[in-house]
Amino acid sequence: MGHSNPFVTGERVWKLGHQNSREGLMDAYRAQSVPMNFNVRFVRGNKNSKVYHLPEGCPSYNQISEKNIALFSSEQKAIEAGYRRAGNCRN
């Protein structure tokens, strides 16, 4: 999703007894000032089948189990990630 994780990138190392901090968290005021666009419709991929569904024209868009959903900002991003278009999409 484009967020950096310093433990994954190797910038930080987890140690036994690690205590979480608020580092990287947005405060409540800043979180409210960030514009939210609820009209954005993501391409949904199924992690198990590697098939993606478009928000319009794909009847199975809302039938993917929540734990198996991979979100993509575009159809091209899904293709680049190795997913193929669902056969029942009408677009």
Rank of each mutant, 00 (worst) to 15 (best):
G2D: 04
H3N: 13
H3I: 11
S4M: 15
F7Y: 14
T9P: 02
R12N: 11
K15M: 05
L16D: 15
H18P: 07
H18K: 11
N20F: 04
S21T: 15
R22P: 07
E23W: 05
E23T: 07
G24S: 11
M26K: 08
D27Y: 09
D27G: 01
D27C: 03
A28G: 03
A28D: 10
A28H: 13
R30A: 02
A31P: 03
A31R: 14
Q32G: 12
S33W: 07
V34R: 01
V34E: 14
P35V: 13
M36S: 01
M36Y: 12
N39G: 04
V40P: 13
R41N: 11
G45M: 03
K47L: 12
S49K: 08
K50Q: 08
K50A: 10
V51R: 01
Y52P: 00
Y52N: 04
L54C: 06
P55A: 10
C58R: 00
P59R: 01
S60V: 09
N62H: 12
N62V: 00
Q63R: 14
Q63M: 14
I64W: 03
I64R: 00
S65I: 04
S65Y: 08
N68H: 11
I69T: 00
A70N: 04
L71M: 15
L71S: 12
S73Q: 10
S74I: 14
E75I: 12
G82D: 04
G82T: 08
G82K: 02
Y83D: 04
R85V: 04
R85C: 05
A86Y: 05
G87R: 05
G87D: 10
G87Q: 04
N88I: 04
C89A: 08
